[in-house]
Design a protein around this nucleic acid. Structure first.
Lengths: 340, 340
DNA sequence: ATCATTTGCGTAACTAATTACGCATCCTGT
DNA sequence: ACAGGATGCGTAATTAGTTACGCAAATGAT
């Protein structure tokens, strides 16, 4: 049933039916009610594609993950995607989840939707400046919000939500020092050089020495954490910060296998604060990423860009940069330093 | 740039441009190439909404979770959604993720898309027959595939992908018996009565006694597992099967707190085989749900329903029922029963 | 060389909405 | 009673494609 047949059936014009449903334009309340009742009865619902065609808007956004070094749609990103979908829903958008496991090209579906007007905008979670830039360039004209750990200045038409890892890392190191730890190790993957720099800075700010940090090659797996902890234990550390919670779990497992108790003999702290991390034995202290705040900020920024684009199509968009801060979350895996 | 302007620019009719892009209808290869080059040059891309309006198809499906007893978009469901999105992508669909945390009404966005032709179909993951039926009824005319642990016979226009939990549970119990366990406990939530029945059956099949099973009330949380294990330990069990991995983690934690070593003093087995479960200490043996197979099956079934609907709109659709089997995954948390 | 196919492409009628514009009413104030 | 504004609604253009139909040209067969 299209609007023509239905309007004839209701004895009004298509314009009136349209006005009844959209709320735009003048219409008598009684007429609107009559139309609603008839629509209910005959099962008429406006076709969404016709509406979108007309509006040149789809009310759909996509979340896209682009990583240069391997991983992945992991737990951290799953949770973020979930928050974004929720925030977008509250703003009236539906969310298309694009799950690409690598640095692959965006899928044919995303490409098609993005260029053909099927998307109002994209939230891009990226770990390398190059991939982010390539992405923004590929989808010129389409509003893009980049979520990243860095303060890249990006080409036009892209807002940035920057996750300030340094703040949480600084808090974590300060807490570790307060618990009596003086030799603190760090485990990180190649993609986390930024976190490493923040860690070194935090050490300096707390007058602590760098004991050297092993780097996990490739994807940051559980096993990398197990392996890396062995290297660090020979450095006589009493606490270890890991650049992801998965690494931290590996480190806990590796230390436990070597007969160490956590946190009595060794303290472990992660970064990401996965929902899961509260459920490990012992619960894992971690640097928390404010996923809800990130999601809200990113959706809000994207909405702004979409609005701008609607108001002045083709105009160069402003550059919005938002910073969200991470925070240390205390749990049992961080305890007092062993005496002597 | 719309097709009219572009076709004028290319010196052909709109029909020819359409044929060049769609591949339908006859067109000279040379013409098609010329059009592609010009399109590239002038940045012409067919508008996706106009195409969908015409095709009365959107190539979009939604994944919807409907649970009567609390939870939730948890890890298990996240991972399943991820697999579904991947499988759907391979079939040319994009996936809309609908994240409802409860038995709430479907969101306004989903409602609108589903009734207005914005979706070709829905994959519904449900834990109660009532909510599944209500859902199918609400979206009459829309192809729905239900993914569930049960073999509900559903009203027309709905295919079912049934997860046969009993097979993996039987394997798990058999393995536990083979490892020397004779008193095996079970922890489950109220929504998992089906798994409990399968467990009791597996006990009988293995000539083992039922030691009684505590039921976690409400959402299956980590803490429920910790609490339930205390009840079970007084029953002198040497192994415990938990209806979810989260419960199993809680059980491990609760047992560890009471000074028991896993698996030397107590074996724990979960159900779900979360990606995370390989990373716990010790790694958690679990009944694996074949998420990839479920996703592929569900998408394939939905595609069938969509095809049927295209071929004969309004015709009552066949009832497709697929069963996928679960399997026991052995890991260190299941060990030999302690002597005596 | 002639007729029958096949091929390539244009015309115009669809797909289902929104909305600017304009014309009647209706209401209000003098 | 009548001017002037507000209100309600219809007409028709617009959004951007697809495709059935038909015609002309090219190809093939005899």
């Amino acid at each position: 049933m299209d609007i023509k047949k239905f309007s004839a059936l209701a004895g009004v014009s298509t314009a009136t039916v349209s006005r009844a449903f959209s709320g735009n334009g003048r219409i008598k309340e009684a007429t609107r009610e009559r139309i609603f009742k008839l629509a209910e009865k005959h099962g008429y619902v406006p076709n969404i594609h016709a509406q979108r065609l007309n509006a040149r808007r789809s009310e759909i956004i996509a979340v896209y993950y682009s990583f240069s070094s391997a991983p992945i749609f992991d737990y951290y990103n799953m949770e973020l995607a979930q928050e974004i979908a929720k925030a977008a829903g509250a703003r009236g958008y539906t969310t298309n989840l694009e799950l690409t496991q690598r640095t692959d090209e965006p899928s044919a579906g995303l490409q098609r939707a993005a260029t053909g007007g099927g998307l109002d905008g994209i939230i891009l979670v990226a770990d390398s400046r190059e991939s982010a830039q390539a992405f923004v360039k590929r989808f010129k004209r389409l509003p893009v919000v980049v979520v990243a750990n860095h303060d890249w200045v990006l080409p036009e038409a892209a807002a940035l939500v920057r996750i300030h890892q340094a703040s949480g890392i600084r808090e974590a190191v300060a807490e570790m020092k307060a618990a009596g730890h003086t030799r603190i190790g760090f485990i990180h993957g190649m993609a986390d050089e930024g976190k490493h720099r923040a860690f070194l800075e935090a050490l300096r700010a707390n007058q602590l020495d760098d004991v050297g940090a092993p780097t996990a090659r490739g994807p940051l797996s559980f096993e990398d954490g197990e392996r890396a902890i062995a290297e660090l234990l020979s450095q006589n550390v009493s606490a270890v910060l890991c650049s992801t919670d998965i690494l931290a779990l590996g480190a806990m497992s590796g230390a436990t296998k070597r007969g160490l108790r956590i946190p009595e003999d060794l303290s472990i702290v992660g970064i990401d604060n996965l929902a899961f991390s509260a459920f490990t034995s012992p619960p894992l202290a971690s640097v928390g990423i404010p996923r809800t705040e990130i999601a809200l900020t990113a959706v809000e920024a994207l909405h702004q860009l979409v609005q701008d684009e609607t108001a002045a199509p083709g105009a160069p968009s402003r550059q919005l940069i938002h910073t969200v801060h991470t925070r240390f979350i205390s749990r049992r895996s961080l305890g007092a330093a062993p005496n002597g």
